[in-house]
């Protein structure tokens, strides 16, 4: 069964009286363990689509179901709670809570889920190890490089054992080496732990790593290809 199933998704923004169809009839189905990229020119609707799939934004019409749950049948509060338990997020920036250390940032999600403190820290430590940051667990975000911050964000996204991880241009603020490292790490997590990743990107090197590439143009999916990724 698909993890994510969207049907006839439409999002119309009103730009000073002119309707903008940011997402214009998208049907996607994402299966467990996929490592997919959504690509397309700027303004093609990538962010809008990811936000709707992640339940951050409501579509004008259409449905999204995640593991059988109709996302927009939930009310606002239920949806926040659903995100906490089922979806991992990695944003382009502003991912971390600046006053908390790396381990506290990761543990925070687990604490919100009501897990006991000891367990939270233990799991946060393991996750930071798995993203290669075991020596940085007590550093604050401003003491970490951009790439390290994004790794913490990935660890945080994985903390709740989500159904999938959404990453909107996770490498946009990173140099090429850091981008490659982050992608390696995500690919490895995908391979070893079957984590489902969906990310949007402009970056050709990132696109090359994806096993499925969906291309958006003017809010529509114009191509959808599955292939063996190039190895770095």
């Amino acid at each position: 069964m698909a993890v994510i199933e969207s049907h006839e998704l439409v999002k119309i923004y009103d730009e000073e009286g002119v309707p903008v169809r940011a997402v214009n009839g998208v049907d996607v189905s994402i299966k467990r363990g996929e490592f997919s990229a959504i690509v397309g020119p700027s303004g093609s609707g990538k962010t809008t689509l990811l936000n709707i799939i992640g339940g951050l934004d409501e579509p004008t019409s259409g449905t999204v179901s995640i593991e059988g749950t109709d996302l927009f049948a939930l009310d606002q509060n239920e949806r926040i709670d659903f995100r906490l338990h089922h979806i991992g997020f990695v944003f382009q920036a502003y991912n971390l809570i600046p006053v908390l250390t790396a381990i506290e940032n990761v543990a925070f999600i687990l604490q919100m889920q009501g897990k006991p403190n000891r367990e939270c820290r233990q799991r946060a430590r393991e996750l930071l190890e798995s993203v290669g940051l075991s020596d940085k667990i007590d550093k604050r975000p401003n003491e970490l490089s951009g790439g390290q911050q994004q790794r913490v964000a990935v660890a945080r996204a994985l903390a709740s054992k989500p159904d999938f991880v959404l990453a909107d241009e996770p490498t946009a603020n990173l140099d090429s080496t850091s981008s490659a490292n982050l992608l390696d790490m995500m690919a490895e997590l995908n391979r070893k732990e079957e984590i489902t990743f969906i990310f949007s990107t402009h970056d050709q090197r990132v696109i090359d790593r994806a096993r499925r590439v969906m291309t958006l143009e003017d809010g529509k999916i114009v191509s959808d290809e599955t292939r063996e990724p190039e190895t770095a």
Binding site: D81, L84, F91, Y94
Partner: peptide
């Protein structure tokens, strides 16, 4: 604003 938005996105509910 950004940080609070992020917190809501990752699942921090309104009462928190």
């Amino acid at each position: 604003t950004h940080e609070l938005g992020m917190l809501m996105a990752i699942g921090m509910n309104r009462s928190r």
